[in-house]
């Protein structure tokens, strides 16, 4: 019992530290890659190739003055950044990042909690993330913030449906809701669900970008229409909290894509954890690449695309999967 508690706490500590480091260096990666996509160098001054830039950014944001505008609802205004960041943080609990190993006679699973409804847990927690954006928009007492908050909530509700549907094909073929079992179902290269569920994979990728509020679906924070959307009135560490949440969600979405479609930690030669991180970085690179490439959607196009294209396609995918499984 005591050993179990200690092992769990150590796992939580290690995963959290790695996760926060990944968030910090994801901001560096994004700036660096965007720089190179636009034929410039990106951050170069702080450390070799700007490697210490995330630390400089963090220190700067911590020491900035925190400006709270007049007539805001103080409590909710302070609560909103936390509500975006915490869901991103606790989703990590169910993501398996390696096969089990033995240390000093104790069997250690490379996942904080092997919850038998991992996917439902992730959907539930990520659906709570909307509140941060909505409340930030509402409590700021600013029309740009309010419009940004409303847009983001409408967008996230719409795309959550097709995101959930796009996963059902995988769940049907794996026959389990546990992420560990789903990874175990993809032990051979051609068993990866990216080959068995190509349509589901593409739908997942698209819906995930919309859920993350990233380009080309970054309407809630469209600079030329809404200043900075729901974060307009935030400054200092509260502003940084929204960014931590967004990048944390990006890592989560990539980790989930790896787990569900790319066979999780499976791969030859290298240790499982390294494979997992490698596959995750591929997705992160892909999302940054998309941001540098595609222009923003118009709002009506976004809604039409979500409800009239993605949801019917997701239903079709479930139907086809069911028919093939019965045949």
């Amino acid at each position: 019992m005591l050993a179990f508690v200690i092992i769990t706490f150590v796992k939580i500590a290690v995963v959290l530290v790695v996760f926060l480091l990944l968030i910090a260096y994801l901001t560096w990666l994004e700036r660096k890659l965007l720089g190179h996509f636009q034929v410039r160098l990106g951050p170069m001054r702080v450390g070799p190739h700007g490697l210490l830039q995330p630390i400089a950014d963090g220190v700067k944001l911590l020491f900035k003055e925190d400006i709270v505008p007049a007539n805001v609802h103080k409590f909710i205004h302070n609560l909103a950044p936390l509500l975006t960041f915490i869901p991103a943080l606790i989703i990590v609990a169910v993501i398996p990042f390696g096969s089990g190993i033995k240390i000093l006679g104790y069997e250690i699973n490379m996942v904080i909690s092997n919850f038998n409804m991992g996917i439902l847990y992730i959907l539930a927690v990520s659906s709570l993330g909307v509140y941060g954006l909505v409340l930030a928009g509402w409590s700021s007492n600013n029309k740009y913030s309010l419009l940004g908050g409303l847009r983001s909530s409408a967008q996230m509700i719409s795309y959550e449906v097709s995101l959930g549907f796009s996963l059902i094909g995988v769940l049907m073929m794996a026959g389990s809701l546990s992420l560990v079992n789903i990874v175990n179902a993809q032990d051979k290269f051609f068993n990866w669900f990216i080959f068995r569920q190509p349509l589901g994979f593409i739908l997942y990728l698209i819906c995930a970008i919309a859920e993350l509020n990233r380009a080309p679906f970054d309407l809630p924070e469209a600079e030329n229409e809404l200043v900075a959307g729901y974060m307009t009135e935030y400054s200092s560490m509260k502003f940084a909290m929204f960014f931590l949440g967004e990048y944390g969600n990006m890592i989560n979405i990539s980790a989930l894509a790896t787990t569900l479609f790319l066979g999780g930690w499976h791969g030859p030669f290298l240790p499982p954890v390294v494979w997992f991180l490698l596959k995750m970085v591929i997705f992160l690179f892909f999302y940054i690449w998309i941001r540098a490439t595609l222009p923003r959607f118009r709002y009506d196009q976004l809604m039409n695309f979500g409800w009239k294209v993605l949801i019917p396609l997701a239903l079709l995918n479930i139907f086809i999967t069911a028919v093939i499984m019965i045949l």
């Binding site: 909307v130 909505v134 509402w138 309010l146 908050g149 409303l150 909530s153 409408a154 509700i157």
Partner: peptide, 8 residues
């Protein structure tokens, strides 16, 4: 979320 949406 829909409740909040309508209230706002």
């Amino acid at each position: 979320v829909l409740f909040l949406f309508v209230i706002m």
